[in-house]
Design a protein around this nucleic acid. Structure first.
Lengths: 370, 370
DNA sequence: ACCGGTCGCTAAACCGGTTTGGAGAATGCT
DNA sequence: AGCATTCTCCAAACCGGTTTAGCGACCGGT
């Protein structure tokens, strides 16, 4: 009689002439099974192509062998932001090694986001989750605690958090951008920020402000936007309508910077001749627009890998420590140049040299098209 | 004594004074349980906050209550392509309604892709999968058949397929783009295509070729690229290096078109004065670059929703029919204009009027910035 | 009053693993 | 040899649901 369907542990046990328990022990490398028997069992398993049923295992061990990610960005932004796919790719690389799966949830409203976590927890679909896009006084931390759902945050929350964090620091990149512009002679450096309630948006803005102050300059105007191209364009219009037009704008992401570049062009302002622009993310496209966009390179895929490792370690019981990631780096391209009216370049104290060092690299070094 | 952990069906049964079976029947709305008893059971369940364990149910019903998606694009492309996030968002909307989850796998090599499906099937993690980016003679169809994994394809495969398809047709969009350019007077319309092995890349190319022939024009040069900005830039260089430089280029996606626009600018070619360009996807950014990009709008989110519905129906047993989606639409913006040397506009037979009809819309109509 | 059928429910088997308690054999030690 | 210890393995319980077989009560019809 031909057995139909997948073989079960019982079939293997019968074939190897042992009990179910023995097969389980042999498979999981537990002691208490003679080496010869173990080999015989494994051979039988392989012969009949048996893989332990994930469902059976999940039930008996109360584990899901999966982790979750709830994305709560508006759909139009999701598509434009290169962050998530890269992050997820990094996550997957690690998960695949450990035979875990990623359960994704995309929601639009904040209310739905909470439900998303609740459902993930209630269904026991996942053993842990990633917490991205941290917000000021993020309520999700308490929620996850209440749900007893292990988590790893991307960035350090501003509230007490029991969860390990993957420490990403956007500030050095922004600081380097400001310094770069100041060195070029800019004195009116504006900022188009991300939404106020995001911790990372706030961090970029603070870094911009602090770097300007450190250079002895007053922070220029700052207008918060929403990371979308439309928002970037609108913010740029606002800045260029000011009486005292900035000579440089630091955008919180590439998408807004690219839209801003178009706005400048439409208004007849040469970039970088009259206006310098910098982005953030270093999208693939950044190097391929004209002029090529000076941007801050981050490593979302690396973050994803680190976050996945941290989360799995946390779930396994060991780990729980924060992991620090390399700081973001400025990539200098063609969208930045000295300002139009040649100021006496202020040369801030210490005059950071432009050598490609920790936080500034040139386009050529990273293989940009010539 | 306080029960710890989540209540189980046994707890509910005890509380309601009935057997496990009765609770199960009541919950699932099966006949054979008196109305009064049913109410009592449901009340007890609600009182103690019981939700049936997904794991227990999965084991006993041999269902995963989840569907899978294996993404096999190179990482750098994943980030740049707005397709996936939008598709996934559409999928999620439907899955959430039906209390199903999405298991995502991102792989890089084609070998890993096959393993991805095999693992998904072997682990029983999903009840079905989506099949995207169909290729010529796609081997995955046979693989999924062998794995007995229900699937829904996006587009109609070129091989016999037992799976329902969500029929998306990129061709009308490309056809409209060609017609638009021909109407403007272009006679040398080139194409920067996607990779040859993709069915949709091939379809766009065929549409381009056929539309030109239909207009009585010889197909211009066509260079296949890889959907990346770098690829688009390189392809554009190739085209502009030709002795007979085309006056218009149709790109298979926005990303390549944007990179191409930058290349043209760097070479001193005015867009659209000397060269007209069209994209595909209608990325958010397309409307916000300068000049704004004429592009073909698709509806990946709608496709995702339709695909999810089709897949769930297939899994449930009903359904299995193909579902047809609205054709892609051309959105005319500022990157297209009459060619430099004013040809006698050939006015192809029938002279399709430019009224915003089935497959052409103007930027204003879709709320583009003025 | 008897009989056949339907209704409402319970007990138990089942899905496919993991884990525990203990039996029996082999080994070590005196 | 006798006893304690260790090793190897099995049987059975368990995870939390679904599903089947079947039992008793109630119903209407003759």
């Amino acid at each position: 009689m031909v057995r139909q369907g997948r073989p079960t542990i019982t079939d293997v046990a019968r074939a190897a002439g042992v009990s179910k328990g023995a097969v389980s022990f042999a498979l999981n490398g537990r002691p208490g099974v003679a080496e010869g028997t173990r080999q015989r069992i494994l051979a039988a398993a392989k012969a009949m192509g048996w893989t332990p049923s994930h469902r059976g295992r999940a039930l008996s061990t109360s584990r899901a062998f999966a982790v979750g990610l709830v994305l709560a960005r508006p759909p139009e932004l999701l598509g434009a932001d290169p962050f998530f796919p890269a992050f997820i790719a990094g996550v997957e690389r690690v998960l695949a090694e450990r035979n875990q799966a990623l359960v994704l949830q995309v929601v639009t409203s904040r209310r739905a986001e909470e439900d998303g976590y609740r459902r993930l927890a209630a269904d026991g679909r996942v053993d842990g989750v990633f917490l991205l896009d941290l917000r000021i006084a993020d309520p999700r931390i308490a929620l996850l605690e209440e749900l007893r759902l292990p988590a790893v945050t991307l960035g350090r929350p501003d509230v007490a958090s029991p969860f390990p964090a993957v420490l990403v620091d956007d500030r050095p990149g922004i600081t380097a951008a400001v310094r770069h512009l100041v060195e070029l002679g800019h004195r009116h450096v504006a900022h188009v920020a991300g939404p106020d309630h995001f911790l990372h948006g706030r961090a970029r803005r603070d870094a911009w402000e602090n770097a300007l102050r450190a250079a002895g300059l007053p922070p220029g105007p700052c207008v918060p936007a929403d990371f979308s191209a439309a928002g970037g364009a609108q913010a740029t219009h606002q800045l260029l309508d000011l009486a005292d037009v900035p000579t440089a704008i630091i955008y919180a992401n590439d998408l807004m910077a690219m839209a801003g570049m178009a706005v400048a062009r439409e208004r007849g302002l040469d970039v970088p001749g009259r206006l310098s622009l910098t982005g953030f993310d270093d999208t693939e496209l950044a190097a391929h627009i004209s002029p090529a966009l000076t941007s801050v390179r981050t490593d979302p895929s690396g973050w994803g890998g680190a976050a996945a490792r941290a989360l799995l370690d946390l779930i396994e019981g060991d780990g729980g420590a924060d992991v620090e990631m390399a700081p973001a780096q400025l990539v200098v391209r063609a969208s930045t140049a000295p300002p139009p009216t040649p100021h006496q370049s202020p040369r801030p104290a210490g005059r950071p040299s432009r050598r490609p060092g920790r936080s500034i690299v040139t386009a050529a070094e990273i293989g940009d098209p010539s």
